[in-house]
């Protein structure tokens, strides 16, 4: 597919999403949620397409994407590993769990493995403090995670 065709395709997809929200600039956050749900991340071309559909400068969209931690401009792995770094998880050793994931997957927090299978990021409290430390892989939540269990958890996805 040529670059132009690709851009055309992005434009069509994005404008459909924006139309669901009546191209209302006040709904930008909801639009971006939905767009990220579709693409997995929000690269520059997609942000520009959103800005055009809604009729605001691209800088405004970029401002929102960079302000909120939920939005990302980097593609995530097929199985995104999210480690909760809330207070409860932290005092229960979440940092050790993070280090273990980093050394097992050989990527740092915020990065994606070369094969695109896993990515690691940290989260603000997800509110499952009773089970601290907590790790999410995709939508699945693992509670009371110990560093020595990390390998087994990763193996579930390999």
């Amino acid at each position: 597919m040529s670059c132009r065709e690709k851009q055309q395709q992005i434009k069509e997809t994005v404008s459909k999403i924006c139309a669901e929200f009546n191209n209302d600039p006040n709904e930008l956050i909801a639009i971006l949620h939905k767009t990220q749900g579709h693409y997995g991340f929000l690269p520059k071309e997609v942000q520009i397409a959103v800005a055009e559909s809604v009729g605001v400068p691209a800088s405004k969209v970029f401002g929102i994407v960079t302000f909120y931690s939920y939005f990302t401009m980097e593609p995530k792995g097929k199985h995104p590993v999210s480690i909760c770094m809330g207070t409860a998880c932290y005092v229960q050793g979440a940092e050790k769990v993070l280090r273990e994931f980093e050394s097992r997957l050989e990527v740092k927090n915020g990065q994606t493995t070369d094969d695109g299978k896993f990515s690691i990021n940290t989260l603000r409290c997800i509110g499952a403090c009773g089970l601290a430390p907590v790790v999410m892989i995709g939508d699945k939540v693992y509670g009371n995670v110990k560093p020595e269990e990390v390998n087994n958890i990763i193996n579930e996805y390999s």
């Binding site: 209302d24 600039p25 006040n26 709904e27 930008l28 956050i29 909801a30 971006l32 949620h33 401002g63 929102i64 302000f67 909120y68 931690s69 939920y70 939005f71 603000r124």
Partner: peptide, 25 residues
Amino acid sequence: VKEGAGAFVCGEETALIASVEGKRG
């Protein structure tokens, strides 16, 4: 229901309002 997008400061009421209006919180 309006969903946030991960910004602690949006718990502050004026920032929350800005976020509901689709702006940076």
